[in-house]
Amino acid sequence: MTTPQLDADAAYAGPAPRHSERLCRPSGIRSLQLGDTKVTYVPDGAVQLTPRGWLPDTTDDTWAGHPEYLDETGNLAAGIGGLLVERGERALLIDAGFGPQSLPAEPGNAHGAIHGGALLDNLAAVGRAPQDIEAVAFTHLHIDHLGWAWHPAPGTDRRVFSRADYLVAEPEWAQRQLLQAHGTTGDMLEALAPHVRTVTDGQEIFPGLRVRFVPGHTPGHAAYVLSVGGQRLIAFGDAMHSPIQVAHPEWSAAPDHDRARAADFRRRLIAELAEPGTVGFGIHFADVVFGQVRQGENGRPVWQPVDTWPGSAA
Rank of each mutant, 00 (worst) to 15 (best):
L192K: 14
Q203S: 10
F206I: 07
G280E: 05
F265L: 06
H284T: 04
G237K: 03
L269A: 07
S252T: 14
D201T: 14
F281H: 01
G280S: 08
P249N: 08
L209N: 00
H217P: 08
T278V: 10
D238P: 10
I205S: 03
T200L: 10
L269E: 01
L192S: 15
H257G: 02
G277W: 03
P219G: 14
S252W: 06
G291E: 14
A223L: 04
R259G: 09
E250H: 10
T200Q: 12
L226N: 00
A222D: 00
W251F: 08
I283A: 00
A253Q: 14
D256R: 01
P243S: 09
D258L: 09
A193V: 12
V225L: 02
A193Q: 15
A253P: 06
R212N: 12
V279I: 14
E272Q: 15
F281W: 03
Q203L: 11
I270Q: 01
F265Y: 15
L189T: 02
S242L: 02
D264W: 11
A271V: 12
R212T: 15
R232L: 10
G230N: 07
A253N: 13
P215K: 06
G202P: 10
D264P: 08
D256N: 09
A223V: 06
P276H: 01
H195N: 12
T218F: 09
G282A: 04
A271S: 10
P219S: 12
D264L: 15
H284Q: 05
V246S: 11
V279C: 12
V246F: 08
R232W: 12
P215Q: 11
V211N: 03
A262M: 11
D258A: 10
V199M: 02
L233F: 06
I244R: 11
I283M: 01
G291H: 15
E272G: 14
F236L: 04
P255M: 00
H195E: 05
H257C: 01
V279F: 12
L226E: 01
V288N: 05
P255R: 02
E275K: 02
L189M: 07
R268E: 05
S252Q: 03
G216T: 09
F285R: 05
A263V: 08
W251K: 06
G230L: 04
Q245W: 08
H241R: 13
E272H: 13
F290A: 11
R197L: 05
G237A: 10
A286H: 06
E250Q: 14
S252V: 06
G202N: 11
L209G: 04
H284G: 00
V288M: 11
R261M: 15
L269D: 04
M188H: 13
R210V: 02
R210N: 03
L209Q: 06
T198A: 01
P194A: 13
L209I: 06
E275D: 03
H241G: 14
Y224K: 07
E272N: 13
F213Q: 14
S242K: 00
A263P: 05
H217T: 13
P207A: 13
A239N: 13
M240T: 09
A223G: 07
L233V: 11
P207W: 07
M188S: 08
E250P: 08
R232V: 07
Q231T: 13
E204T: 01
T218N: 13
S227I: 09
G216L: 08
P207I: 10
G220T: 10
R212K: 15
A247M: 05
S242Q: 05
P243W: 05
